[in-house]
Amino acid sequence: MSVDKDTVRRIAHLARVQVAEEKLDALAGEMNNILDWVEQLNELDVTDVEPMTSAVETTLHWREDKVTDGNKAEDVLANAPDAEYGFFSVPKVIE
């Protein structure tokens, strides 16, 4: 698998990360290095090995169906660049 400049531009856009045009080539190189490195894992035969889902022997913790949180709109909105009438206010998103 190999990443080119267009792919980097596209990934950056999907993640809404602004990347200057002149940095795209360098990033493509870095990403390819990472991919190559991970690619080495494919050399291992894992046919009979169950996928590992956690480093420790544990299972998913379940929560009871109780309301234990909420009613903190002020906290929730504290970091919002803009908020009005209890809502987050963002630049108009037109459907």
């Binding site: 309301v67 949180d69 709109a73």
Partner: peptide, 21 residues
Amino acid sequence: AKLFSGASAAFGAEPNANVSL
């Protein structure tokens, strides 16, 4: 409560009232 948090799943509350972090 919600699928992954303890905030209320009720309909019709004040804006952002049923929201956990």
